[in-house]
Design a binder for these strands. Structure first.
Lengths: 145, 145
DNA sequence: GTAATACCTAAACCTGACTTTATGTCAAGA
DNA sequence: TCTTGACATAAAGTCAGGTTTAGGTATTAC
């Protein structure tokens, strides 16, 4: 069993955030001893899931719904599975978008590197978008697709 | 030259957002004809860069700083290049974090699939974390690293 | 005994990125 | 002429996800 302060250190989260999550219903099984929260392994696993679902783009109230399903028992396995499937797809799509963003950023890095080398953007822009080195052309196309 | 309504349609952005960006200084070269904004190719390219930098995690006021550098001329090529290098690194790190999130989500998909199959989480948890199929073990390790 | 800590609550506050509202201008079409 | 639609502004409102504040309790350290 852990105090809120210990969990705060373990997860590098402010105490206020843990209390906020609790208030929002994200720890449905949280125990108390004379008013004081006692985090068990169950709450730590909940916190891992919370961080995962948050990174996947879920809002707090949707995570709360998930926790409510957990309380409901085995009848909600399908809902829970469906949620993770949906988040998996969302993250896969996000990674594709990020890859395009990354290609744009790489292109811009090359662009300014070259601008510095030739001394001005103007001479550089004359090359665009038809006279680029092939690997830069690939970045340019990916970013402008 | 395009009207704000045309650009709104081209980029699938509300007119209010474009005006907000303009107010925040994100279109330093924007022209007007009797008070009405006229978007040129320069503004469209600015908008592409805005979307890229936003996805990379930059705030509006930092994007505004970038636009200010563009106005300052070739002397700020190094600052602009450094910005893109930093964003590139940030996005690469974000993609690594997302990959871990994805592994956790895939693990949870397998977990609930199996829970549905065997009828209860409890029998499943007895297998964890030591008796997992190898490819699931890999996801579990990646997600809990 | 008293001072420092760690915990508690409720409620107000904050931030970023927009969005909405209220009000007004202007040109084109019926 | 009059109304419709696209444009404009300033200022207020919204929302999520916390954070801060104000006031209190309980335990430990000196």
């Amino acid at each position: 069993m852990y105090s809120i302060g210990q969990v705060s250190e373990m997860f590098h989260l402010p105490v206020s955030t843990l209390r906020y999550y609790d208030k929002e219903g994200l720890f449905p099984y949280m125990e108390r001893r004379s008013g004081i929260r006692r985090f068990s392994e169950r709450e730590l696993e909940a916190l891992r899931v919370i961080e995962c679902l948050k990174k996947s783009g879920l809002e707090i109230k949707e995570i709360k719904q998930f926790m409510a399903w957990c309380v409901e028992g085995p009848a909600t396995y399908p809902e829970r599975k469906a949620l993770f499937e949906t988040r998996k797809q969302a993250v896969e799509e996000e990674m594709l978008r990020l890859q395009k963003t990354l290609d744009m950023l790489k292109f811009k890095c090359w662009y300014y590197e070259t601008a510095i080398r030739v001394g001005s953007e103007d001479r550089l822009n004359e090359m665009l978008p038809d006279h680029l080195p092939p690997e830069i052309q690939k970045l340019y196309d990916s970013a402008h697709a």
